[in-house]
């Protein structure tokens, strides 16, 4: 559906993107993960034909962004990072305006608006002015405005920024429903849990470079990050601890927390074996902690830094 080939883009002396390539299949949810300033919005603007790359090619559903701007704009919907709505207009008036830009016949547009309002669960508030809406409701209308021309591809640029958990879940449901209906979704975020939750493929970007990309499983393999099992002992008995560590060289003792730490390839299967080994050595276990591999740990491993807001 989308082919991005060796794209580079600079703004003055600042290299926003360098040699970026990825493919997105039809019906996929593709996550672009990175901190602020990593180049996510530049990718979005290139995909939307607003910014032309200095080098490289982008083919979207057979159209080249260099000369098929108009065709690409018709198959693509963009949900901007900002709540780009007219606050003095009602939700319905906003939808009529934004949908009207695509020259959709009025009866069809009205039908699309009603359907979209149902999807974002705001049909009951359609006549209220946007300025009376909560942040989460505005975000949902912000998404709705980009869906009215039935795009094949929907680009969501940080759609949950500043949204409370309840509204965030509401937005996730909307995205999952749209994807279920066959829309290809490109999702930029700097929230790991969002990318983990529903992205089929994830591209990790930092300072204009793609560091790694693939499914979560593939990223786990690339980064070589493992699950972590932490077993806190009831007492710090040196004889028992040295017995455990000598019999199991992969077991690591941390005196500060009086814990044994073990990296696991499959934490579900390995936990009971490890517990048995520790108990057989005569130790009394006080508490057990598990930490599965997640994007946070992968990002940390790949970039050497934490991804923050």
């Amino acid at each position: 559906m989308i082919e991005v080939r060796a794209v580079s883009k600079s703004f003055g002396n600042i290299k926003a993107l360098e040699n970026v390539s990825f493919d997105i299949e039809k019906g996929e949810i593709f996550g672009i993960l990175g901190p602020n300033g990593a180049g996510k919005s530049t990718i979005v603007n290139i995909l939307n034909t607003l910014v032309k790359p200095d080098m490289g090619d982008v083919i979207i559903d057979g159209f080249n962004i260099r000369n098929d701007d108009d065709s690409i704009k018709l198959i693509m919907g963009v949900v901007p990072q900002e709540i780009a709505l007219y606050e003095e207009l009602s939700a319905y008036e906003n939808l009529m305006f934004w949908g009207g830009l695509y020259n959709i016949p009025k009866p069809e547009l009205k039908k699309n608006i009603n359907k979209t309002l149902e999807i974002v669960d705001l049909a009951g508030r359609k006549d209220d002015r946007i300025k009376t809406f909560s942040g989460g409701m505005k975000r949902r209308i912000n998404i709705a405005c980009s869906m009215l021309h039935n795009p094949k591809i929907l680009v969501l640029d940080e759609p949950t920024a500043g949204v409370d958990p309840q509204n965030r879940n509401h937005i996730f449901e909307v995205i999952e429903r749209l994807n279920y209906e066959g829309i290809t979704i490109i999702y930029t975020t700097h929230y790991m849990e969002e990318a983990e939750r529903f992205c089929d493929k994830i591209s990790i970007i930092d300072v204009g470079h793609i560091i790694a990309q693939g499914t979560l499983k593939e990223l786990r393999q690339i980064s070589n990050v493992k699950d972590l099992l932490t077993i806190k002992l009831a007492a710090a008995e040196s004889e028992i601890i040295s017995r455990i560590t000598s019999e199991n060289p992969l077991f690591r003792y941390e005196s500060a927390s009086n814990s044994i730490k073990v990296e696991c390839i499959n934490i579900g299967k390995e936990t009971s074996v490890i517990i048995n080994q520790i108990q057989n050595a005569g130790a009394v276990i006080e508490r057990i902690y598990t930490q599965g591999t997640n994007l946070e740990s992968i990002y940390l491993k790949l970039t050497g830094k934490e991804l923050r807001d």
Binding site: K73, P80, Q81, I83, A84, Y86, L101, Y102, S146
Partner: peptide
């Protein structure tokens, strides 16, 4: 407030 960009995303 981003509406100009959104207009530019349209045809």
């Amino acid at each position: 407030n981003g509406t100009i960009n959104r207009l530019l995303y349209s045809p």
